[in-house]
Simulated scan of single mutants.
Amino acid sequence: MAEPTVGAGYARGLLELAVSKGAARTALAERSGIELADLEDQDARIPFSKYVALMRAGKALSGDAALGLHYGDDVDIAEVSIVGLIGQAAATPMEGFKQLNRYVRLIVETDNEGDGDRFQMKSRYGGLWMVDTRRHAETFPELTETAFAQFVSTPRRLGLTAPLKAVHVTHSDPGYRDEYERIFGAPVTFDADWNALQIDPAWAPRDLARLPKYVFGVLSERADALLEELQTSKSVRGRVESLLMPILHVGEANMDTIAGKMALSRQTLFRKLKAEGVTFERVLDELRQRLALDYLNARKVSVNETAYLVGFSDPAAFSRAFKRWTGSSPRAMREQRLAG
């Protein structure tokens, strides 16, 4: 199973907070194993393990033991993830809660993927609770701290309140209980049997939207595309495609090369692709087809340049393949696009 990942924007937000508290940017990158260039694209992904290392490096280098809690309280999630913007475009807190569950993987993936919604509303002890169902949360409690602090701090930034009656967390008291009580404004129970916030039921139907309704649709469309990309990257096919793309034009797009990059034998890669219902040859062929259509539709490169970019040294061979894909020659399609 592929390692969980974190949105690069989310990781960058944590790094910038640590820097603002005195940590050196280069030292944070070195200790976490993160290339700073990898954080430039907000929608890119970094391994979850590197985010954990970044959090721990940030705490050590900034001297802020409560950095995870402060990240949720001090940094607007809308500045570091599209999910925060979608929340601001939701009509009510409950609608925002629904969209959070739908897109939370774009912020951070956890070890309970496939187990249903990560955040759930449950009745217990005579009250309504928002429960974080993440497994083994006590091994990295900072993620719970950040998520819960964001839950109460985001409405405050919008001029609303998310009245809490109690906070339960499975980890032990980290030594800054006062900060918990300041941020949450409610009694905190450590070493609890779940991670949950008791909320006022009157909070659910309140008006929330701070962005026009049409923005919600635009943001959701983009988030759906990012989710699809994330899901594809988890498949063997997706990993093969991501490794093929940068080497298509250099003549090394073969199964042995990709198997080596994945630290697999040729036979193991064959079996893994077969389990997904494809062969290496089919993945390569369909990737070339998709990219060729993209290049020609963009009208920025010639037919011969397109042939080179998708891995054909012989333009005639590319033309034959293109006609097999589309029923038309690449030149005829390009001329049709230019005429349109």
Score class of each variant (00 low, 15 high):
Leu197Gly: 06
Lys98His: 14
Thr170Tyr: 09
Glu113Phe: 10
Arg102Val: 10
Asn254Val: 07
Ser242Met: 05
Glu241Cys: 07
Ile199His: 13
Thr26Glu: 15
Asp294Val: 10
Asp74Leu: 02
Asn297Glu: 04
Ala137Val: 00
Asp207Pro: 10
Gly277Asn: 03
Gly96Arg: 00
Ala166Leu: 12
Ala204Ser: 14
Trp203Gly: 08
Phe280Asn: 09
Ala18Pro: 03
Trp194Met: 06
Ala29Trp: 03
Gln289Val: 01
Arg105Trp: 10
Met1His: 10
Arg237Gln: 14
Lys261Ile: 02
Leu338Arg: 15
Thr146Gln: 10
Ala37Ile: 02
Arg266Val: 06
Asp200His: 08
Asp115Tyr: 05
Arg222Phe: 10
Phe190Ile: 10
Val310Gln: 06
Gly116Asn: 00
Ser235Gln: 05
Pro246Cys: 08
Asp193His: 13
Gly340Leu: 14
Asp207Gly: 15
Ala332Arg: 06
Asp200Tyr: 01
Ala29Asn: 03
Ser328Thr: 09
Gly13Arg: 02
Val215Asp: 03
Arg320His: 10
Asn101Arg: 01
His136Arg: 14
Leu208Trp: 15
Ala147Asn: 14
Glu252Thr: 11
Asn297Lys: 15
Arg12Tyr: 07
Leu208Asp: 08
Ala66Arg: 04
Arg288Thr: 03
Arg266Ser: 11
Ala29Tyr: 06
Glu3Ala: 12
Ala149Ser: 04
Phe190Pro: 07
Asn304Arg: 13
Tyr51Ser: 05
Pro201Ser: 12
Gly58Phe: 01
Leu219Met: 12
Tyr214Cys: 03
Ala53Asn: 08
Glu113Cys: 05
